[in-house]
């Protein structure tokens, strides 16, 4: 079953067509990666799926519902959770609070300022520690997020997305800017998640992509130029050309 579907999605920034008629299907329960050279339009495609960027034309369907006109928060409430390429956290709140806010959004995103039942709060707390455990940040729960190292902030970035318990988890280059040591840690985390979540992944570390993905889509100059299982993509001449240039 396709959990997410885009139809001829096109995004323009002035004269630049960042995403060009992209039609994509993400199957539930799989890891689907999007690769491509820098500037291929991968993050713009992400932003268009989550609602941060409006498409010039085309539609986005989530669980067979047309969500093209919905706002960012409405899509998040439907179950789309994402992490960002550039670390995007709540710097002056604690690590615990960062993830707590995500978990709380799942159960009550309304702006009504009433009290929350006690058992609900303890469930939330358990959920937060569960997520922090998954990414290995449980012992830093009380730190201010700004005090974490870059690598730990990247892990927190993923933890916030997990806190939402999303139906579709979108990870935008989770290993960006990580040291080899931190990259290995992050890869371990993502491999763990791959079994339990439907994941849409943007990543430059090709060996990670090849290892975890069921399907890979390749973008180049805003267009989808290839799609298929990892083995097929590796052999695809169009992909080799996009990455290595014409010989």
């Amino acid at each position: 079953m396709a959990i997410l579907r885009t139809e001829n999605l096109t995004v323009r920034f002035g004269a630049l067509t960042a995403v060009d008629r992209v039609t994509l299907e993400i199957q539930a329960g799989t890891v689907h990666s999007i690769i491509g050279p820098n500037g291929a339009g991968k993050t713009t495609l992400f932003n268009c799926i989550t609602g941060e960027v409006r498409p010039a034309s085309g539609r986005v369907f989530f669980l067979d519902r047309d969500i093209t006109g919905l706002t960012v928060y409405q899509r998040a409430q439907l179950g789309i959770g994402r992490s960002f390429q550039r670390t995007n956290i709540f710097p002056n709140l604690t690590v615990f609070e960062n993830v707590w806010l995500a978990a709380f959004a799942r159960i009550r995103p309304s702006s009504f300022p009433g009290p929350v039942p006690r058992h609900r709060l303890s469930e939330l707390k358990d959920r937060v520690y569960e997520v922090l455990g998954e990414v290995g940040l449980a012992d830093r729960a009380g730190y201010r997020a700004a005090e974490l190292s870059h690598g730990d902030q990247r892990l927190l970035e993923v933890a916030i997305a997990l806190g939402l318990s999303p139906k579709l988890l979108m990870l935008d280059e989770p290993t960006a800017g990580l040291s080899p040591e931190e990259t290995r840690l992050m890869m371990g985390v993502i491999k763990q998640l791959a079994r339990r979540y439907t994941i849409l992944l943007i990543e430059h570390k090709i060996h990670l992509v090849m290892e975890v993905s069921e399907t890979i889509s390749v973008m180049h100059f805003g267009r989808l130029i290839a799609q298929g299982p990892p083995e097929e993509i590796q052999k695809n001449p169009a992909v080799q050309e996009a990455y290595l240039g014409r010989r």
Partner: peptide
């Protein structure tokens, strides 16, 4: 000090991220 108050602080810290979590900021 309530959950509502924490969401307000999240909006102060990073409104775009709060919206991406599903809060109608």
């Amino acid at each position: 000090d309530s959950p509502f108050g924490l969401v307000l602080q999240a909006i102060r810290e990073n409104e775009a991220r709060a919206a991406a979590l599903g809060y109608n900021t």
